[in-house]
């Protein structure tokens, strides 16, 4: 084990007592291993995978190791705060390592140990779960990681992102933080989680912070989200994404100045992949809200997914033409 010893922590910082303690322990573990610890992306996303630190950085040859917490919004999963396991907003901790290290499973298991899950008394299993994101044009092979029958993480070797082969392959770990915390804290209802690890009056519970939000957002997501606005936002985000993508291609000859309508073969570097990708993220979230509102029919649904996927593909292509994507100047 690393130099981080659980025993050294004061009780309120211990991962099995404190939700934030759990997050901090995981972040310290991965920081100690060599990851950059990023902060959440400042946009609404359905999963940590949408963070450009995952989607875009998984593309291209450059090594990359990062870990970050990402608030994830799943409008359809809202239950007005009445379900002990389902939330429309929750936290994921995502670790992305490119190329995937040979001992990634070991690293993962040690991270569990770092939050107090001792493999000597628990039953930890890797159960087949292939991952696919139709909206991101991405897929990978891996497992759900089970601890005593509970899925506590997803473990994926990315094979394709934005319809491009990953070369090299990244290993992606996603910890469902609330679920993991419920497990180590031994509570049955997510709202009962101890957030700050304190006792008595000083204790802050998950419900103190999020119950009202779950109620309000469920109402918003299912009943009141302004669908006219959302349809318009989808169109605008899609159009803006395409506009930035098109405008971002730099002609290879000129070296400066951005010009429009350059045929793909003559394209040089791309200068606006990240802003374009923001609009793709936006479109994706707006689609999720429209879906929760039940205003997208089954047939339309597929076509919306394909529209977002087309944006993601084009953003991936643009990213590969940036310095971060491995294109030299």
């Amino acid at each position: 084990m690393s130099a981080l010893r659980l025993d050294d922590l004061p009780p309120h910082m211990r991962p099995e007592r404190s939700f934030q303690g759990l997050i901090l322990a995981l972040q310290r573990y991965w920081a100690d291993w060599g990851c950059v610890i990023l902060q959440p992306y400042d946009m609404e996303v359905g999963a940590g995978t949408f963070h450009p630190a995952t989607t875009l950085r998984a593309l291209g040859p450059k090594p990359w190791s990062a870990a970050f917490v990402q608030p994830s919004r799943r409008p359809k999963d809202g239950r007005y705060g009445e379900n002990p396991n389902r939330l429309q907003h929750y936290y994921q901790l995502q670790v992305i390592l490119k190329p995937s290290p040979d001992d990634l499973q070991e690293l993962y298991l040690r991270s569990l140990y770092a939050i107090g899950i001792d493999p000597k008394i628990h039953d930890i299993r890797f159960v087949e779960d292939d991952w696919e994101s139709p909206t991101l044009g991405a897929w990978g092979l891996g497992w759900e990681c089970w601890c005593d029958g509970m899925e506590v993480s997803q473990f994926t070797y990315f094979q394709q992102v934005a319809d491009f082969e990953c070369a090299p392959v990244s290993g992606e770990l996603t910890y469902g933080l609330e679920r993991l915390a419920m497990y180590v804290q031994g509570v049955e209802n997510v709202f009962d989680l101890n957030f700050n690890g304190r006792d008595g009056a000083a204790r802050v519970r998950y419900s103190d912070i999020f119950l009202q939000a779950e109620q309000e957002y469920s109402r918003h997501n299912f009943e009141y989200a302004d669908t006219d606005m959302l349809f318009e936002q989808f169109r605008m985000a899609e159009a803006a994404c395409k506009k930035y993508l098109e405008a971002g291609w730099q002609s290879p000859q000129s070296g400066d100045g951005i010009s429009n309508n350059i045929p793909p073969k003559a394209r040089g570097r791309h200068l606006m992949a990240l802003p374009a990708y923001d609009q793709c993220i936006k479109a994706s979230h707006v689609f999720n809200l429209l879906d929760a509102r039940g205003v997208i029919s089954v047939t339309e649904r597929q076509s919306y997914i394909l529209r977002v996927r087309d944006l993601a593909k084009a953003c991936g292509e643009a990213w590969l033409a940036t310095e971060g994507g491995g294109r030299s100047a």
């Binding site: 040859p61 190329p99 995937s100 990978g140 070797y157 094979q159 070369a167 090299p168 392959v169 290993g171």
Partner: peptide, 10 residues
């Protein structure tokens, strides 16, 4: 279904 991994997958 098979997959690639690690440094060699480049």
């Amino acid at each position: 279904k098979s997959m690639r991994w690690g440094v060699q997958s480049e």
